[in-house]
Design a protein around this nucleic acid. Sequence first.
DNA 1: ATTATGTATGCAGGATGACGCATATATTAT
DNA 2: ATAATATATGCGTCATCCTGCATACATAAT
Lengths: 103, 103
Amino acid sequence: MPSEVIVYESEIFKALAHPTRIQILHLLRDGERCVCEIVPALEMEQPNVSRHLHVLKKEGILSSYKEGLRVIYRVNDPKIFELLDLCKELLKNHWEKRQKTFV
Amino acid sequence: MPSEVIVYESEIFKALAHPTRIQILHLLRDGERCVCEIVPALEMEQPNVSRHLHVLKKEGILSSYKEGLRVIYRVNDPKIFELLDLCKELLKNHWEKRQKTFV
DNA sequence: ATTATGTATGCAGGATGACGCATATATTAT
DNA sequence: ATAATATATGCGTCATCCTGCATACATAAT
């Protein structure tokens, strides 16, 4: 029986466990964006994007507000970018080690 | 079409997206452990634990070696713990903000 | 060779996730 | 009220994940 915190952690990671959702976070890195900007940037169908946004919002990673017809999404805590960056560093280390091993 | 790095990142997150696997990482935090130590600590069936270990190993997060009958697993890069810690901080921030909002 | 021990894997079930398509909802403009 | 626009949701389908059970595999002991 894992502690509750561990379950919540796993849910955060689950929310990040899709390329499209990571792309969305990168798009929101320099500020909030409305769905109508996110959809064309991802070259993906609008309902699909809407669901991915919902997943991130449900986990408290994003929040949104309406402005006329548009819905604008933004990142709640910039620390999420540290998480993404750290993950990339991890991959870099791993990749460099592999290179050393196989070359 | 997400970049390859983003796909790899999402795969790391997917590997972390299960409470049991996070528990395993915590167990390995102060050093390597054999499966026969991990199984009772998790109170979970051995084949199931074995598969979760496999997921983490496949993503390059763990590696293993044999010692007689036993298989010993260890974390490849301690940076993975920074990732877990950062995630917990994120949760903490989020939770504190909720408290402020709802109280 | 046989037996015992530790670990991994095959298979089947149910659960969950992602996507495409159509459509509902909300807001604005006419 | 009607039409147009932006976003969200319902539904069906296919794929993937998680688990339990049985069993295979590897190593060591007798």
